Amino acid sequence: MAHVTEYLPLLLAGLRTTLLLAISTMVVGLILGMLLALAKLSKSPWLSRPAYAFTNFMRGIPEFLVLLLIYFGGTQVLNGMLPEGGFEVSPFGAGLAALSVIFGAYASETFRAAFQSVPKGQIEAGRAYGFSTWKTFRYIQIPQIWRVAIPGLGNLWQGSVKDTALVSIVGLDDLMRKAQQASQTTREPFTFFFVASLMFLAITLVSMWIIARLERRASRGFAGAR
């Protein structure tokens, strides 16, 4: 355990990178998921069909393959487009892009189901009272959408945190890569990978507590509104 204390700053630096990637993924993924859900619900086939095709494709291939396609394929495509060449997709950028599109693809289904759970009569009532489309969305749809979507989005968040470990393969200095570096130096792989697993577990437990509070708060707000 003496080695763990010695390498703890290294592991904490990797943990910060992991959390930064996970939080950035969630923010971008939520925006993308909402846009895809709205496109799926659109009456225009020019919006709904590509949205369904994109999400089905992203949900049908492994996350690791998406990461490799963006990291290596993105570098190749950009170098082919830029005359000077020499461009390389960063490990963090590749991880953010890969995990965000995966998060967004799954989140779009969660949002779509949440949108469909809102009674149409409430939307029509809001418009009858003179609400604009934005006000109807803000004050009637969003509170009920979040109440329904929070459990599913919480599961996606926890899965996204664990998926960040994949990005160490392309060179990101995240928690897994730092644990691997420490284990190679000290020749104690079990010790450092076990510590890394405890750190991931701590993130999961804290996330579960926060998600549970958000669910209770959303339920109280919905009950109060009724």
Rank of each mutant, 00 (worst) to 15 (best):
E6K: 07
Y7C: 02
Y7I: 00
Y7S: 04
Y7A: 04
L8A: 14
L8R: 10
P9H: 07
L10V: 10
L11D: 08
L11I: 13
G14K: 03
G14M: 07
G14N: 05
G14R: 05
G14L: 08
T17W: 10
T17G: 00
L20S: 08
I23K: 00
I23Y: 03
V27H: 07
G33F: 04
M34S: 12
L35F: 13
L38R: 07
L38D: 02
K43H: 14
W46I: 13
L47S: 08
S48M: 09
S48P: 12
S48G: 14
P50L: 06
A53P: 01
F54E: 01
F54D: 02
R59E: 07
R59D: 06
G60I: 09
G60A: 05
P62R: 01
E63I: 04
E63N: 04
F72T: 12
F72H: 11
G73C: 13
G74M: 10
V77L: 15
M81L: 15
L82M: 12
P83L: 12
E84A: 12
G93D: 09
L96V: 10
A97P: 12
F103V: 08
A105V: 09
A107D: 02
A107P: 08
T110K: 04
A114E: 03
S117F: 11
P119N: 12
Q122E: 13
Q122P: 12
A128V: 15
S132N: 11
S132F: 05
T136Q: 05
F137C: 07
R138P: 04
R138Y: 09
Y139N: 05
Q141G: 00
I142Q: 02
I145W: 01
I145N: 01
I145E: 01
A149F: 02
A149N: 06
I150F: 10
I150E: 05
D163M: 03
V167W: 02
D173F: 04
D174M: 02
D174H: 02
K178A: 12
K178E: 13
Q181H: 05
T186N: 00
T186W: 01
T186R: 01
T186E: 01
R187K: 09
R187H: 06
E188P: 00
F193V: 01
F194P: 03
V195W: 11
A196T: 03
L198C: 14
L198H: 06
I203Y: 05
L205W: 08
V206Q: 10
S207T: 14
L214M: 15
E215W: 05
R220S: 15
G221Q: 14
G221F: 06
R226D: 08
